[in-house]
Simulated assay, not measured.
Amino acid sequence: MTTNTRRVLVIGGGTAGSAATVLLRRAGLDVDLIEARPDWNATAGSGITLQGNALRVLRKLGVWDQVQACGYAFDEVGLTTPDGAVLHVQADIRTGGPDLPGTVGMQRPKLQQILIEAVRASGARIRLGVTAQSLDQDADEVSVTFSDGESARYDLVIAADGLHSATRAMIGIDTAPEPTGMAIWRTPAPRPASVTRTDLAYGGPCFIAGYCPTSESTIYAYLVEALRDRSTLDPASYAEHMRELAAGYGGAWPEIAASITDPAQVNYTRFDRMLLDGPWHRGRVVLIGDAAHTCPPTLAQGAALSLEDALVLAELLSGDQPWDEELLSGFAERRVARVRPVVEASVQLGQWQLDGVRDADAPGLIYRTLAPLAARP
Score class of each variant (00 low, 15 high):
residue 68 Q to D: 15
residue 102 G to W: 04
residue 120 R to T: 14
residue 117 E to V: 08
residue 44 A to I: 10
residue 69 A to I: 09
residue 232 T to G: 13
residue 111 L to T: 08
residue 262 D to L: 08
residue 71 G to I: 01
residue 334 R to M: 11
residue 144 V to L: 10
residue 54 A to P: 03
residue 358 R to L: 14
residue 272 D to R: 08
residue 166 A to R: 15
residue 350 G to A: 06
residue 100 L to A: 07
residue 197 R to G: 00
residue 267 N to R: 07
residue 30 D to T: 13
residue 91 A to P: 11
residue 44 A to L: 13
residue 364 G to Q: 09
residue 240 E to L: 01
residue 91 A to L: 08
residue 333 E to A: 13
residue 89 V to Y: 04
residue 10 V to S: 09
residue 18 S to K: 04
residue 155 D to G: 14
residue 313 L to W: 02
residue 309 D to P: 03
residue 190 P to S: 10
residue 7 R to M: 05
residue 213 P to M: 07
residue 114 I to M: 07
residue 21 T to Y: 04
residue 211 Y to R: 11
residue 20 A to S: 12
residue 13 G to C: 03
residue 185 W to N: 04
residue 326 E to K: 02
residue 239 A to K: 01
residue 121 A to E: 14
residue 62 G to F: 09
residue 356 G to P: 12
residue 365 L to A: 03
residue 253 W to Y: 13
residue 70 C to P: 00
residue 259 S to R: 05
residue 298 T to D: 00
residue 188 P to I: 00
residue 189 A to S: 15
residue 198 T to Y: 01
residue 113 Q to I: 02
residue 126 I to L: 15
residue 2 T to L: 13
residue 106 M to R: 05
residue 87 L to N: 02
residue 69 A to H: 13
residue 50 L to D: 01
residue 51 Q to M: 11
residue 222 Y to I: 05
residue 353 Q to G: 13
residue 245 L to P: 00
residue 292 A to C: 07
residue 374 A to F: 06
residue 71 G to S: 05
residue 74 F to K: 09
residue 338 R to T: 12
residue 294 T to N: 13
residue 274 M to S: 12
residue 87 L to R: 07
residue 169 A to H: 11
residue 50 L to I: 09
residue 360 A to E: 01
residue 310 A to Q: 00
residue 349 L to V: 10
residue 275 L to W: 03
residue 119 V to F: 08
residue 244 E to A: 15
residue 14 G to R: 01
residue 193 A to V: 10
residue 322 P to D: 00
residue 313 L to A: 04
residue 250 G to I: 10
residue 18 S to Q: 07
residue 5 T to F: 07
residue 212 C to S: 14
residue 32 D to W: 12
residue 164 H to P: 02
residue 124 A to Y: 05
residue 49 T to A: 13
residue 348 Q to W: 03
residue 354 L to G: 07
residue 156 L to H: 06
residue 220 Y to M: 07
residue 186 R to G: 02
residue 186 R to S: 01
residue 359 D to M: 06
residue 205 P to R: 15
residue 4 N to L: 09
residue 184 I to K: 03
residue 25 R to T: 08
residue 162 G to I: 05
residue 375 A to G: 11
residue 364 G to N: 10
residue 326 E to C: 00
residue 251 G to I: 11
residue 367 Y to N: 11
residue 15 T to P: 03
residue 248 G to K: 04
residue 48 I to N: 06
residue 47 G to I: 08
residue 174 D to P: 02
residue 367 Y to P: 00
residue 173 I to H: 10
residue 17 G to R: 05
residue 34 I to A: 06
residue 64 W to E: 13
residue 212 C to R: 03
residue 59 R to P: 08
residue 307 L to Y: 03
residue 269 T to W: 10
residue 101 P to L: 12
residue 221 A to P: 06
residue 236 A to M: 07
residue 47 G to H: 04
residue 348 Q to Y: 02
residue 195 V to L: 12
residue 221 A to M: 13
residue 49 T to H: 10
residue 19 A to H: 01
residue 128 L to E: 05
residue 358 R to Y: 01
residue 180 T to K: 11
residue 108 R to A: 00
residue 176 A to G: 06
residue 20 A to F: 04
residue 188 P to L: 02
residue 246 A to Y: 04
residue 270 R to D: 15
